[in-house]
Write a protein that binds this DNA or RNA. Structure first.
Lengths: 212, 212
DNA sequence: TTTAATCTGTACCAAAAGGTACAGTTATGG
DNA sequence: CCATAACTGTACCTTTTGGTACAGATTAAA
């Protein structure tokens, strides 16, 4: 690992004698993320990435350092922008836990079937299996964040009586999260909407019993 | 795709003028499978594979044709030998559905935590996302086979009163299968046995209510 | 034992991988 | 308007990739 010219650049930006970068770093990162998202780390070549990012090699290595560093940034960017569930607003939890969770699964199934895309964190978890600790850290943080969002919904549901209070809310949140990823794997194997909806229904029937 | 010397070889073997192959094809395939299993398709180089298989390039291309063909065979081999659940014997279903499913999850969690391995079909599903139809076919067949095995256990459990009959057994089988893969993804992200066991418990509590 | 077919490993190959060097250009502070 | 540092893209580099060619060894039938 060499000393990073990128960080130096970040630090000294806007001091003196610094030209503005001509391309939009965030946009380039976003495009790179799309490539990694669909092809995985090994599956994405520098050629693929540079084409999607619409920049040359010089600019790339000055701005991002290496393919791996770009991937780490792309993974974080995914986690921050594409997780299907936002941290619930402080002010209000407008709709019921039931509706919130169903909406989550609906979005998930839509993405799985229509776009044929799988959460990048899940892909990364299987591609790296803990062999890269930086990747593992980002993935773990992202999945924990997802679990926390689901936990908040469940606590809310237990508070207003939608969800039985006997069950440990943390256990339920992890259970939902596991179903979330299970649906994506099965959907990747065979994109059949009915089956995935059936799984979501069955999963939710555990915590929201009053359902057909 | 060129005409395959391998099939010709298979056909004419034991006819005349054929030397026996000096290495054990099955053993080589098995070793290759282990490499693909842990590294994925793109992540496994020919060097990795040949080293693990302990054969030279000449023998390899004569016997297997190409990296991709080897992968397809390895994937099938995995499906046939490593799926954690055997097709239940005709003669007897010795233990209860409860125990069968719990044993399945125990094995799964053990593999996930101790060996840090994820079902190769699941990995393949995410790595290829349907971009290779031959891969998709093997994966789909394998997962369907897993679902069928689980279905048989569930039907058995519904027959002997362990599992409520109101629920569609097919839906339950798919639900269990989804949990199966969800556990592996979450275990790949963070190998915490307690959490995975909690997910398994919660999943099973839907169909086997009489549980602490 | 001869003969022929095919197995094995080595040497080789073109293409693609990720990454570096650098000439030319351009924005910025003085 | 000048000087200069940093940006841009091209050309180049080394290593690795998956795959082929082929010489020599080896087996099995006649």
């Amino acid at each position: 690992m060499k000393s990073s010219p990128f960080n130096l650049y970040q630090l000294e930006r806007n001091n003196c004698f610094m030209r503005q970068r001509e391309f939009d770093t965030q946009k380039a990162l976003h495009n790179a993320m799309e490539v990694f998202w669909s092809k995985g780390y090994k599956g994405a070549s520098m050629k693929d990435l540079l084409t999607a990012m619409r920049i040359g090699k010089g600019s790339f290595y000055a701005a991002f350092g290496s393919k791996r560093e770009l991937y780490l940034q792309a993974l974080s960017h995914f986690r921050d922008t594409k997780m299907l569930i936002k941290q619930p607003k402080r002010k209000a939890m407008p709709i019921s836990a039931h509706e919130s969770l169903r909406e989550l699964f609906n979005q998930l199934i839509g993405r799985t079937i229509n776009q044929r895309k799988v959460c990048m964190l899940g892909k990364a978890a299987l591609e790296f299996r803990g062999s890269d600790s930086a990747v593992a850290e980002i993935v773990d943080a992202g999945i924990t964040q997802l679990e926390d969002s689901i936990l908040k919904i469940i606590l809310n549901g237990q508070g207003n009586g939608e969800i039985p209070k006997e069950r440990d809310p943390h256990a339920l949140a992890r259970y939902i999260t596991a179903s979330f990823y299970g649906i994506q794997v099965l959907g990747g194997a065979k994109p059949c909407r009915e089956h995935l909806e059936e799984i979501a229904d069955t999963t939710l029937s555990l915590i929201i019993p009053n359902r057909h």
